[in-house]
């Protein structure tokens, strides 16, 4: 047994809200800063546990730049009591925060290769730090493709930023929606359908996929059909996370704990369990 005093990993630190930006009717982006000291470093793809006072704690991916900075950025969608409470926080309000936790996107290993981001819905948020990293270090990568699927044109996340990214000539961005009226000038269809149309070298591509699990299943199949080896495909898994540090057992996914073995996982490592129902 360890005799040395240890930091208690269950204790949240206190952060305060610096900025709130409403993204969608049910989705906000919060910028939070530690009440004392500096925020820890993090890797793209990692997550924090956000605590709404007296209500509870949820896992939310980091969606800001992983570069130096004083704050964490989180995009939160109201789906339950805790996310609703966090979404209602105003500038100056305090919340608890533990993290960052988990395994992130291997942006360094992807250097020299083409990079394909496949995002679905709110899945763009956990990919954003990786996208920002790749764009900030654009000369270290081959072709860069972002394929983003959303439910309909009014539910597009980070719409302004997508428009900014589209101005760049060194990244291919293709957006599609599941349903649209005739006003929409863009693509209609599912995001996996964009994969065969995208320009990248399947033999030298690292693909980062994030979105609802079914969307990831179809996307991985389309990447495979396009010739991308499964050990070059990374997905971000979602399971119930309570402790975030491998001690509570909730986020088990086959032999793994999503909180510490993931959330980002190399697909070939989980290919055998990914399609087992209710695993």
């Amino acid at each position: 047994m360890s005799a040395a005093p240890q930091l208690d990993p269950f204790l949240p630190d206190i952060y305060s809200v610096r900025d709130v930006r409403r993204e969608l009717p049910d989705t906000v982006t919060l910028e939070v800063a530690p009440k004392a000291g500096a925020r820890p470093d993090f890797e793209p793809g990692q997550f924090n546990m956000l605590y709404a006072f007296g209500i509870g704690e949820i896992a939310i991916s980091l969606s800001g730049s992983a570069g130096s900075g004083e704050t964490f950025i989180h995009t939160v969608r109201e789906v339950g009591a805790v996310s609703a409470a966090i979404s209602k926080l105003e500038v100056g309000a305090e919340l608890g925060l533990r993290g960052p936790y988990g395994a992130g996107w291997p942006v360094n290993e992807a250097e020299g290769s083409d990079v394909v981001f496949v995002a679905g819905g709110l899945g763009l948020a956990p990919l954003r730090p990786a996208i920002l990293h790749v764009l900030a270090n654009r000369n270290r990568y081959g072709r860069v493709v972002l394929l983003f699927g959303s439910r309909n044109p009014t539910e597009l996340l980070y719409r302004d930023e997508l428009a900014d990214w589209r101005q760049r000539l060194d990244v291919d961005i293709d957006v599609t929606v599941d349903h649209a009226d005739a006003e929409w000038r863009g693509n209609v269809g599912v995001v996996p359908a964009l994969i065969p149309r995208a320009a990248f070298d399947p033999t030298d591509t690292i693909a980062f996929v994030c979105g609802p699990e079914v969307m990831m299943r179809f996307s991985v199949a389309a990447l495979r059909d396009a010739g991308v080896p499964l050990d070059h495909v990374y997905v971000s898994m979602e399971r119930n996370m309570k402790c975030a540090i491998g001690l509570c057992g909730h986020c088990q996914f086959g032999p793994t704990f999503v909180c510490k073995d993931g959330p980002v996982m190399r697909f070939d490592a989980i290919a055998d369990i990914f399609s087992i129902r209710e695993i």
Binding site: M1, S2, Q6, L7, D8, P9, F10, I245, G246, L247, K260
Partner: peptide, 14 residues
């Protein structure tokens, strides 16, 4: 093993 030998120590258990 579960509580004391992973990356995070379960302090109350330990």
């Amino acid at each position: 093993k579960v509580f004391c030998e992973g990356p995070y120590l379960d302090v109350p258990y330990a």
